[in-house]
Design a protein around this nucleic acid. Structure first.
Lengths: 141, 141
DNA sequence: TTCTGAGATTAGAATTATTCTGAGATAGTA
DNA sequence: TACTATCTCAGAATAATTCTAATCTCAGAA
C-alpha cells in the first residue's frame, strides 16, 4: 500500500467511526504496515521512539484498540502471554515456527474453502494455524 | 476415560519422564478430564479448593506445566490475555462463541486432511479455529 | 524401618503485560 | 481563531504469571 493510500485509508476509517486521526495513531498504523513480522506492543513502541519520542506505551495500546475497532488491525494470538498485531486484515492463515518463533502469513487460498454448514454453530470466520519449522530453521534443528 | 485409566495414564506418563505423581498433579488432571469447558487456572484452582484447600495457585501453574511437558494437557489460546487448558490432547479443532465466550471442541474429521507439502515450511501440526455464535447464542443475538 | 536428597509445594514477593486516572494537549469544527 | 470533546501521557493500579526460599514428601539406599 502506498503512503498516500495509507493516509487515505486510516483517515476515512477513523472518521467514519467518529475517531480522530492523530500522529500517534498514524505512526502505529504506518509501522505495522511497514513490517511483516507481527510485532508486539513493546516492539512497536521501541520502533516509534527510536529517533525521538513520539508515543507512550499507553498510547500504543489505545491506538491499537482504535485501529482494531475500525478494522484496520487484527490481533494475532499464537504464543502464551504474547499479543501480536497485524495490519494485514485480509483473510489469511498463520504459520508459527517453534524454533525461532517467527510468524508467517499463509495465503487464504492455500486451503480449499471449508463447508462449515453442517456444524451445530453459526460460523462467521475461521483461520488455520500451522506449527512447525520455518524455511530458515529446517535443516539446522 | 475411566478413573482407573486416568490414574494409569498419568502415572505412566509422569514416571516415564522422571516426574513424580503427586496428589496436586493428579487433582489438576482429574479436574481437567472431568470438564469440557477449557478452564483457566483460576477456575481450576477454585474447583480444587472448593471443599478444602488442596493446592496453591503456583502449584496449579507448575502442575499444568508438568502435565503439558508429558503431553497430557494442551494449552488453548483463543482470547486476549486468557490461557485455557484442555485434557483432550487428541488432534481437534476449536469453535469460539463471540457472544458467550464458550469454547467447543470440533472433531478432527470435520475437515478433509490438508496437503501442507507445498508450503515453504515444515508443517508439524495444524488446527482450525472457528469463530461465530454457538448453538445457545444463535437466535438470541 | 530409618535416612537422605532430589524434587514438589507453598505463601508471599517480584515481574510483566495491560488498563486506569486525571491533568494537560490537540484535532477538527464552526 | 476559539471552542470542546477527544486524545495523550506519566505514573498508579490491576491482573496474570513466575520467582524465591523455606518447608515438606517420597523413592531408594542403608
Amino acid at each position: 500500500m502506498s503512503k498516500e493510500n495509507q493516509r487515505d485509508v486510516i483517515v476515512n476509517r477513523l472518521k467514519s467511526k467518529g475517531l480522530r486521526v492523530t500522529p500517534q495513531r498514524f505512526a502505529v498504523y504506518a509501522n505495522l504496515c511497514s513490517r511483516r513480522d507481527h510485532p508486539t506492543v513493546e516492539q512497536i513502541l521501541k520502533d516509534l521512539n527510536q529517533d525521538f519520542p513520539i508515543s507512550s506505551q499507553a498510547t500504543v495500546y489505545t491506538s491499537l484498540q482504535a485501529l482494531r475497532k475500525v478494522g484496520l488491525v487484527k490481533e494475532v494470538l499464537l504464543e502464551e502471554g504474547v499479543s501480536r498485531y497485524d495490519a494485514n486484515v485480509e483473510p489469511h492463515h498463520h504459520f508459527h515456527c517453534r524454533q525461532c518463533g517467527s510468524i508467517k502469513d499463509v495465503p487464504w487460498d492455500t486451503f480449499d474453502s471449508f463447508n462449515l454448514e453442517h456444524l451445530p454453530y453459526l460460523a462467521e470466520s475461521y483461520e488455520v494455524t500451522i506449527r512447525g519449522l520455518c524455511d530458515r530453521c529446517t535443516g539446522n534443528n
